[in-house]
Design a protein around this nucleic acid. Sequence first.
DNA 1: ATGGTTGTTGGACAA
Length: 261
Amino acid sequence: MTRIATWNVNSVKARLANVTGWIAETRPEIVLLQEIKCETDAFPRAAFEELGYHAAVVGQKSYNGVALLSTLPVSDVLDRLPGEPEDPQARYVEATVGGLRVASLYLPNGNPVGTEKYPYKLRWMDRLHERARALLAEEVPFVLGGDYNVIPAPEDVYDPVGWTEDALFRLDTRRQFRKLLNLGLTEAFRALHPQERHAYTFWDYQAGAWPRDNGLRIDHFLLSPGAADRLVSCTIDRGPRGREKASDHTPVIVELADPVS
DNA sequence: ATGGTTGTTGGACAA
C-alpha cells in the first residue's frame, strides 16, 4: 500500500512543529506540501530527513512554494508547469517515486476576479490540462495532488450562493476543472464519497469559519486511470486544523494498493 | 456592508 498526503501548510517554517508532528504520527510514504513560503535553500530539509524523507523542493521568497517528500528516492524532478516559461511563481513540482509520477501543485487563487489574477488562473488550468494530456500519453500511472483553489460543486462549499462570483467557484473555473476530469482523470474523494457533505479541507482564519464549519473543499487528488484502478481510500484528516498554530488547510490522504505484477 | 485573521516582513500584499 502507498499512502500519499497533500497539505497546504501556509508557511513550512511557521508550521514546522505541526507538520513534522503530523507526518511522524501518520507516516505517509509521500507528502505533498504547498505554500511553503520560503526559498528552496531555506527549506527545513534536515527536519524531514530525520524522519526518513527525501525532498524535492521548488521554493520562492515570501509566497507560494511547493515540495514533495518521499520515503522512497525521488527522480526526474520537473520544477515548473510547462507552457509559460517566464512564469516566476513556484507552484508545481513533479517527480517519479516508485513506479508513479506524482505532482504537488498550488493552483492560483485567482481573486479578485477582474484583475490579471483571474486570467492567470485560467491559463494555469490550461497548462495543467496540457500537462495531464502529455502524462496520459506516456501511459505511466500518475497522481496530481494539491491545493487546486477550485470548489468543484455546490456541496463543496458552506454557502454556494454567496460564493457564486468568487474565483474558486465561478462557472469558468468549474468548467475548466471538469475539462481536466473529462480527460479521464478520477477525483479521488468524490469518486469514493459521492454523497458526503461538509467534507471540507479549508476554513478561513476569519469570522469563526472553523468553529462554524464554514469550509471549502479545494484540496484534491486527480488520478490517472492506472492509479485510479488502485485507489483504496481517500480521507480528510480534520485533526491538524483544530490544533494550535494551525494552517487554514487540513491534510487529505489517498491510499493506493500495490500494483499487480 | 464591514471586518473579521495569519504570514511574510517591516508597509502592503496575498489568501
